[in-house]
Simulated assay, not measured.
Amino acid sequence: MYYGEKVCLRAYKEEDIKVAAELVNDEELKRFLTPRIPFPISPWEEEDWIKSQKGNQSGQFNFAIEDMKTKKYIGGCGIQDVNWLARTATVGIMIGDKDYWGKGYGTDAMKILIKFIFENMNINKIKLSTFSFNERAKKCYEKCGFKVEGILKDEIFKDGKYYDEVLMAVFREEFQE
């Protein structure tokens, strides 16, 4: 487990399956999570995904986010698309429990994840993308040291409108300062 001030990042547990399936199917949350058609995920699909999670040498790692006070599962975060030669990785995060939105839990989890990547994986650059309408996420990422690297115009179609996709990154040297 990896600890911050409010949360810890840990492996997924079987008891997370039901809660995780409910969270990822929330209409408001799904709006922030996927650029694709927001089709529901079945509890069995979520169970298969959780049971398949293991750290591996290809560099894909997914963590459950747990509130340290209550020991409650509140979301997840992960590392994908590791390029060992260029020393880059892509990350994603979801605080699914709305009671924890806007209270610093996502920022704490992201800082732990960034520290894990820089200290344990020898990565130089961490990347992510978010949607232009997701102001809460952009503020969180900026607090963690991410800066906008580019904008993909009209990349996302949600609620009958087009939105930009915002590409952000943080470098090891900048984060350590």
Rank of each mutant, 00 (worst) to 15 (best):
E135D: 12
D67H: 04
A89G: 13
D108P: 01
M1I: 04
L33R: 01
M1Y: 12
Q80E: 12
M121K: 09
F157T: 01
I37E: 15
E14M: 14
K72D: 11
T130P: 00
K6V: 10
T34N: 12
E66S: 12
F61A: 06
E22D: 14
D97L: 05
C8R: 11
E174A: 06
D108K: 06
G104F: 11
Y163D: 00
E5W: 02
A137S: 10
Q57W: 14
G4C: 01
K13S: 13
M68C: 05
Q60E: 14
M94P: 10
K18M: 10
L113H: 11
Q60L: 09
I126E: 06
E46N: 09
P40D: 00
E27C: 03
K115C: 07
I17S: 08
E174I: 04
N83F: 15
V7A: 02
W84Y: 15
K147A: 04
R136Q: 06
I74K: 05
E66R: 06
Y100K: 06
L152A: 02
Q53D: 06
E149A: 02
L167Y: 10
N122C: 02
L113D: 09
E173L: 09
E28H: 03
D67P: 10
T90R: 09
I126N: 02
D48Q: 14
G76L: 11
V82W: 00
P43K: 15
T88H: 10
K71G: 06
W44G: 06
A109H: 05
G96N: 03
E142C: 03
Y141D: 00
K69P: 00
N25F: 15
K13L: 14
V7L: 08
M168H: 02
K138M: 09
R31Q: 02
L113I: 01
E119P: 00
L152N: 02
K115Q: 12
K139A: 05
Y73H: 15
E28P: 09
K161L: 13
V24K: 06
E14P: 11
F39T: 14
